[in-house]
């Protein structure tokens, strides 16, 4: 079967992260929510997305640092569960995600007034950090789905991460880059939609790679 050539080639980029320390600490629930309201977007991003790149395997920890600290250090399991189960895939920008986190903690504090004052020592405090992202082109450039699939097999998980998360959340693209290219440049809406529907937050990056490869394979009969 003759494969559809893309109107525009797809260039794979990668995104590498350096962690910057902000010098801000929180020792109780009131402090953490106060800081969450004002820290840079890159800090909210770091604490809600860091685990995706550092965890390449299934882990029982809640999928964001706020939930992890609130559970394991403050011992507020119920609040932690609420934060851990935020449906992150529905947010297309970090400030909306920030607002959702703040709303949950504020509401919890209203109902559990004393929880806000439990104070911890510095060694247990929450340390706010932020991600400095470096985006750079890789050598992979593809013009059809077969080349796309081969590249998917070889790029780093950082590159998968960039095209599925970073582009959407921090750079403000509507969907992930892969779906966007497959839909508009290849003209395969069905495959684009299938990839777009994947919830990247509930897969490891390696799983995401495998699922996407299978979807493309099915399309091109590979």
């Amino acid at each position: 079967m003759q494969l559809q050539k893309a109107k525009e080639p797809f260039k794979f980029y990668t995104r590498l992260n350096l962690t910057e320390l902000t010098g801000l600490f929180a020792s109780n629930l009131r402090q953490i929510v106060r800081h969450i309201k004002k820290v840079p977007v890159s800090s909210i991003y770091h604490h809600t997305h860091r685990f995706l790149q550092q965890r390449q395997y299934h882990s029982p920890e809640p999928p964001n640092d706020f939930a992890y600290w609130i559970s394991n250090v403050l011992g507020e399991k119920e609040l932690s569960e609420q934060l851990a189960s935020i449906d992150m895939a529905r947010f297309s920008d970090i400030n909306s995600l920030r607002n959702a986190i703040v709303e949950i903690i504020d509401l919890y504090l209203k109902k559990n007034f004393l929880s806000g004052f439990r104070h911890l020592e510095k060694n247990e405090a929450f340390c706010f950090m932020k991600s400095v992202s470096f985006i750079l082109p890789t050598s992979y450039v593809v013009t059809d789905l077969k080349e796309f699939m081969e590249a998917l097999k070889n790029i780093t998980t950082d590159s998968i991460y960039f095209h599925t998360f970073e582009a959407r959340l921090r750079i403000g693209r509507e969907t992930n880059d892969f779906s966007d290219w497959i839909k508009y440049s290849i003209g395969n809406k069905k495959l684009a939609d299938e990839i777009s529907r994947l919830d990247p937050y509930t897969h490891t990056l390696e799983e995401l790679r495998m699922v996407m490869i299978r979807l493309v394979e099915k399309q091109i009969g590979g």
Partner: peptide, 14 residues
Amino acid sequence: LLFLSLYHGEDIVY
């Protein structure tokens, strides 16, 4: 990345 950050002050660096 640290060395490169010395030439870039922003949070997203191209």
